[in-house]
Write a protein that binds this DNA or RNA. Structure first.
Lengths: 199, 199
DNA sequence: ACCTGAACACCGTTCAAGT
DNA sequence: ACCTGAACACCGTTCAAGT
């Protein structure tokens, strides 16, 4: 049974989900696939590229597909952002892997492109839509990474300081929605967007 | 001459600035200080903690100091964000180091606290100010990391596809300002902030 | 208190050689 | 085309022992 690129990718995601990014080493991945470490380098030029492929796989569905019928830009934008967050949260250390991949400039820009398209629908010129999309994506990635690292810390030992349901601090999901709202509010207040709404 | 914690920190920042994060290893740091690797572990429990100390050092000045006299919240907020960006940009791989430190939850939350204080000045209740501050800080970190990785790529080989000054894409600084503007616009449109302005 | 010496248990990557 | 075997050049961390 020959190893295929897709098998390597699937094996890597399996290790990520079960043991986390720290345990996702080329050697460990190789042995989980019953192969020598060097064999992996026939399918991927290096580890960074493999991580970027994982990132693309994780985020692929989040930005795919056309807008729902009759979905306006200011429904579409948060919908996309939420789907990206959900996708990242559905794999252990997903946000950290993605952050590293984007820092290395090896991951697909499909997510930013999808966000930019929604901004253009809102009336923004292409260059502004691009800047807004990058800003929003930075937010999604950063906030989700923060949230996921907090989850990791909570599970490993330290109980929440307030197990009481009384002084409950805002949940991670609430915090995400709040920042998202600020962002959309900012876009909505833009002259170009206001103009389009008035016309 | 005994090694002090501060010397280790300074040596680490020197390597970071000159050779980048990939070359900042405990072994290399030790040899640059004329000491055995093990010696570093008397001053810092591990590498992550050392990186977090670097992050705190880099960002210390950015959030310090009182607001300028007569500075309103919506001047203060972008001023803080710009100072944080500048601080991160002034050290090679600064944003990546900070991102890793915050992901590991080892860096100081002084920056977020300073941003939250400005939001409270704007009329936000404490919990909302906290969420807004975290959102803005995520943005600053993510955007600056993006920008810095782009700088790294430009310097290492690949010339910009358009050396022509005609179709100039927005500069990184412009992109940062644009996202910042969206954010502030979102805060400004918040009911609590509008109310305070009307009173 | 602070550091050395030396080890432990790993890494990512390369590449001739095999099939 | 795809993989093995084996090496190269490293890592972070620990810890008895020294001063």
């Amino acid at each position: 049974m020959q190893l295929r690129r897709h098998d390597v990718l699937a094996g890597a995601i399996a290790i990520l989900d079960e043991y986390g990014l720290a345990d996702l080493t080329m050697r460990r991945l190789a042995s989980s696939l019953g192969v020598q470490p060097g064999a992996l380098y026939w399918h991927f030029p290096n580890k960074q590229t493999l991580l970027a492929a994982i990132t693309d796989e994780i985020l692929a569905d989040a930005s795919a597909g056309p807008p729902a019928p009759a979905e306006t830009w200011d429904e579409r934008l948060p919908t996309l952002a939420r789907r990206m967050r959900d996708a990242l949260l559905s794999h252990r250390d997903g946000a950290e892997v993605a952050s590293a991949s984007y820092a290395a400039r090896l991951a697909s820009e499909a997510p930013q492109t999808a966000l930019a398209a929604a901004c253009i629908d809102g009336g923004l010129p292409a260059d502004e839509a691009g800047m807004a999309a990058r800003a929003l994506f930075s937010y999604v990635l950063g906030q989700t990474m923060d949230e996921q690292s907090r989850m990791q810390m909570d599970s490993h030992g330290a109980l929440t300081e307030s197990a009481s349901p009384l002084f409950e601090s805002p949940t991670a999901a609430d915090g995400f929605e709040y920042g998202l709202g600020l962002f959309i509010g900012g876009v909505r207040a833009l002259p170009a967007v206001v103009d389009q709404r008035l016309s």
